[in-house]
Amino acid sequence: MGDVTEFNDETNGDLLVDFRDVTFKRGGRNLVGPVTWQVELDERWVIIGPNGAGKTTLIRMAAAEEFPSSGRAFVMGEQLGRTDMRDLRSMIGVSSAALGNRIPLEEKVGDLVVSAGYAVLGRWREEYEEIDFEQAHEILDLVGAYHLIDRSWGTLSEGERKRVLVARALMTNPELLILDEPGAGMDLGGREDLVGYLGDLALDPDAPAIVMITHHVEEIPFGFTHAMLLDDGEVVAQGLIDTVLTSENLSKTFHQPIDVSRIGERYFARRTRRPGTHRR
């Protein structure tokens, strides 16, 4: 456990994540921070940055999977280091490649989703009610994966797996949904289907707060409200998405000239060519 600084003050009850000068260090190296960041109930955040920027480490703290090395970190109103992390995790839905890598290849999709309520990977001896199966079927249908219900994990494509992981993350009716690169490894059609679903979810007033990691602005669903740019563990910019996703900020984050454009509700980015350059 990291050395969490002792403070007497409390967090605002409307904040699901409340980080104040939070850092995370490992092996003597500072991986994240200091970061001050708050996520409210109705917000949808995207976190963007290059490889090694600290994105996954940051959201692992937000998912109550890591303790900060310093600063104050509140999740669901509880300070990390002063509460049972297992209780916090029950209120957070997480979809990540790390979770996907732990799933046995023979696990059935329907069992994988319904078992999320017990925080286990697949059914064993747990007792489920009919309402549990109905909810699992409804969520799988919402993400366009109901037809996969009897398939085994090992037979799914990358895009199909991402849909199932999102369904499992939603199964517990979380207050906070964390998505770690949900579009990674998907083809264009699969990515666009997923972006469309996540956009609909973002616009649903009854949906949980959402925090999503991506490397690509094209993968940001419509309806997302806020953005954070990270580089080398430090915040380059954060706030309302329109003010953060600018050419200047993206160029600074990725250390090359980036042009950002918006078409409708979607963002697109490309590297600008230097004056006088041409193909040989």
Rank of each mutant, 00 (worst) to 15 (best):
A145R: 02
V113P: 01
G110E: 07
G154A: 10
M76G: 06
G71A: 14
V120P: 00
R29N: 13
V75H: 05
L140P: 03
D87R: 14
V109H: 02
I48A: 01
V46I: 11
E129R: 15
A73V: 12
I131S: 15
F133Q: 08
H147L: 04
S152R: 12
L58E: 02
D21M: 10
T155N: 09
D150Q: 12
A136I: 00
I59Q: 06
V94L: 12
E134C: 05
A62Y: 10
D111I: 03
R44G: 00
T57V: 10
G71T: 14
D87M: 15
G154S: 07
E134D: 11
E106D: 13
F133K: 10
E138W: 06
D21G: 07
A136H: 05
S157V: 13
G81L: 10
E65K: 09
N51V: 08
Y128V: 04
A64C: 07
G28I: 04
A119H: 11
T23N: 12
A53M: 12
R26A: 12
L99G: 03
N30V: 13
P104V: 05
R82P: 02
G117H: 01
I103S: 02
R82F: 14
K108C: 05
I103E: 03
E40N: 03
A98Q: 11
E40A: 09
S70C: 11
L58D: 00
W45G: 00
R102L: 13
S152Y: 02
F24A: 02
I139Y: 00
N101R: 15
G159T: 07
F24K: 12
E134K: 15
Y118E: 09
L80I: 14
R44K: 15
I139V: 10
G122Y: 00
P104Y: 01
